[in-house]
């Protein structure tokens, strides 16, 4: 059933004019609806090219792309694009327009009425944590890099597209703001269930954000899998060298459960089958426990034996992310 897929790449390849080698070799991919998929690879490996074929900024040399079951080649490019959010590498906000005008771009193209646009702009700015009162009338030049990125995201979501294409949206942002923006986009995705294709060349970002990760090298997909699966079973030596799973495990051996567990009381409910671990135990052990028991999470007990938190793959994922791998 193609219907459960938001985007399907069928034998897609791209060779630019006058180029000797394809920038993207024949590729087959199926992106599930509502999934967050990150595209990871070194500079020049074809990430942007792959992404731009989806909204036809580039035309594929071979193959076809189905978006929500329909061949994009049959759609008008402008109409197709209005149904997808697009955040370009390097933001690309319109400097001569205020924040509100930027965000209102697509609704205006679509001819929404003023009031509806106004409400939408407010809602979106709130969604990306920019108080409308303060930010609506500002020009991009009066915003920090991180704030501009937020506006870029709000703008891409303006017409409520089910698919978001994001090309290294956080590329130019410092580490702290970057982490905040990553959490933001995760929160938004959890809330709105968009299908997101997110290009990055930051391994931690790819593993943190992605439900699934596409790893590319020199125009070829190396692996397309969930982050943990990639760490556990790298498909080839390229992927292994890229993600250094051994390093990650080594790191995990030095991190204590106490430091990453989810202490939210609401999630602590458990039955007898749930595996448990002490709060001083290393994440490496917790991970092994999770893999061995195939449980969804491990409950963490303090020295008195009381349950104080839990760790699921979710929390492990977050660690992977903050650890410096190199």
């Amino acid at each position: 059933m193609t219907d459960s897929y938001a985007i399907v790449f069928e034998k897609i390849s791209k060779t630019f004019k006058h180029a000797k080698e394809p920038s993207v070799y024949e590729t087959n991919l199926k992106i599930e609806k509502g999934s967050f998929v990150t595209i990871l690879g070194a500079s020049g490996c074809g990430k942007t090219t792959l992404l731009k074929m989806v909204n036809r900024l580039y035309e594929p040399s071979t193959g076809r792309i189905l978006v929500n079951g329909e061949d994009t080649a049959n759609a008008s490019p402008t109409l197709l694009r209005r149904k997808m959010g697009y955040v370009i590498q390097q933001v690309g906000l319109f400097q001569h327009m205020t924040v509100e005008q930027n965000v209102a771009t697509v609704p205006e193209v679509l001819g929404w009425d003023r009031q509806k646009i106004d409400q939408r702009v407010d809602a979106l700015l709130r969604l990306v944590n920019l108080p409308p009162k303060e930010f609506r009338k500002r020009y991009p030049g009066q915003l920090s890099g991180g704030q501009q990125q937020r506006v870029g995201i709000a703008r891409a979501m303006a017409a409520d597209p089910s698919i978001l294409l994001m090309d290294e949206p956080f590329g130019a942002i410092d580490a702290i703001n970057r982490a905040a923006l990553q959490d933001e986009i995760l929160r938004i995705q959890k809330k709105l269930h968009k299908t997101i294709l997110f290009v990055t060349h930051d391994i931690m970002e790819a593993l943190k954000l992605g439900d699934q990760v596409i790893i590319m090298n020199q125009g070829k997909i190396q692996q397309f899998d969930a982050p943990l699966a990639i760490l556990q079973h790298p498909a080839n030596s390229f992927v292994r060298d890229l993600v250094h799973p051994e390093d990650l495990l080594q790191q995990m051996a030095f991190i204590k459960s106490r430091d990453v567990m989810n202490t939210d009381a609401a999630v602590l409910g458990a039955d007898d089958q749930t595996p448990t671990a002490g709060e001083e135990e290393s994440l490496k052990d917790v991970l092994l426990l999770l893999l061995k028991t195939q449980a969804e999470y491990v409950l963490i007990k303090n020295t008195e034996g009381a349950v104080v938190g839990r760790i699921s793959f979710q929390e492990l994922k977050k660690v992977g992310l903050n650890a410096e791998l190199h």
Partner: peptide, 12 residues
């Protein structure tokens, strides 16, 4: 980049 971003949003 600005033009591309405009195109990417479906402006004609």
């Amino acid at each position: 980049e600005v033009i591309e971003s405009a195109e990417g949003m479906g402006m004609d």
